[in-house]
Write a protein that binds this DNA or RNA. Sequence first.
DNA 1: TCTGGGGTCCTAGGACCC
DNA 2: TCTGGGGTCCTAGGACCC
Length: 408
Amino acid sequence: MNQRLILHVDMNAFFASVEQQSNPELRGKPIAVIGRGRTVVTTASYEARAFGVKTGMNTWQAKQACPHVIFVIGDNRKYTHTSTQIMQMMRDYTPLVEVFSIDEAWLDVTHSLALFGSAERIAYLLKARIRQRFGITCSIGIAPNKLLAKLASEMKKPDGLTIIRPDDVPRVLETLPVGDLCGIGRKVEQHLFLMGIRTCGELGRYPVERLTRKFGIVGERLQQMGKGVDDSPVMPVEDEEEVKSVGHSMTLERDISLHNDICKYLLQLSEMVGRRARRYGVAGKTVHLTVRYADFSTIGRQQTRKGYTNQSEEIFREAVSILDSLEISQPVRLLGVRITNLSYQSEQLPLFEDERRKVLATSAMDEVNDRFGNFTVTYGSVLDNEEKGSFVISPAWRPDGIRKVDVE
DNA sequence: TCTGGGGTCCTAGGACCC
DNA sequence: TCTGGGGTCCTAGGACCC
């Protein structure tokens, strides 16, 4: 393969930066963006990070680390809006933009050099424009592939620009801890450590048969990663693979045990899943129910149906039927509903009159909700449910496409 | 470290069929 | 009938990413 030139762009403390821009009083201050209810920090500003506030901490821990931290409840729409515009800006430099999450993207600029000179220049232009228009800084990595570009963007934050040239690769990787690579998490890192592998250099030299014996098919890929090899292409949204599941889950405001209470949440979740599935024209054959107990132990059960559905009521019925097959042994902390085994169906009305009426009623309901907000029109018992659980926004949410999630 | 939510991929075992 | 092997689908759980 010809030498490629890939940029990885990572917005610095994205949610927190957007908040500080939209509210000048927050600028220069330690802030933490959180969800509602039982929640954690999704993003901390650099001022807060200086005190040790980190993503994933609960509010109590954040307060311990930084007593004067300012909590801001996240506003998903604001971030989606800003992200969409930034991603669009990137397309001025190449059509090959892969949106990895709401605040990260790869650009393949291999064929953009005639127009813009160099990858470095593109990075500078992009950084300047993002800062000027949105007041946000980003870190950019430039490298011959996605793996290394992502690694490079992590190396200097905030407002960094790091280049890994093909000649630099062996030197950079030789002493780099394996866990610094995207794709090697804590567990794999531990396994590798027990095998005597700490650095990418060691990983790349390790006999592939022994890695395969331990990790199966992943073993091969691990060795490639250790060598800094990654042939995966930058995939623009149009070429993205079809989504394979649609789901929602929520940690409840309080742990609950009553069957009736659980059902109320399941109805709400089923409606959220169904609506999103209908909006994108998918239907699922399998319904999954996730239950997390107070002690954090989590079980998942699934049921495969005869046919496909994206009707909230049917998803709900399936979820309840799974629930009824379980022994609920402790108070419940989290509930989740998901559909998989998806089919991308063209709009088709069912054959039978009563079915047809139901589908038409659902789409009328969807229309109202699209216009006036979620749960404007819904099934009676959702409205009874005063505590809606906590919707935590996450940087992993996509700014567009089927994975886009609207909350409230 | 009392610990959110949306996804993907992989593994291993069982049912079922030919 | 005491017993093979491959393919496919389903299920449960875990690792990983943001």
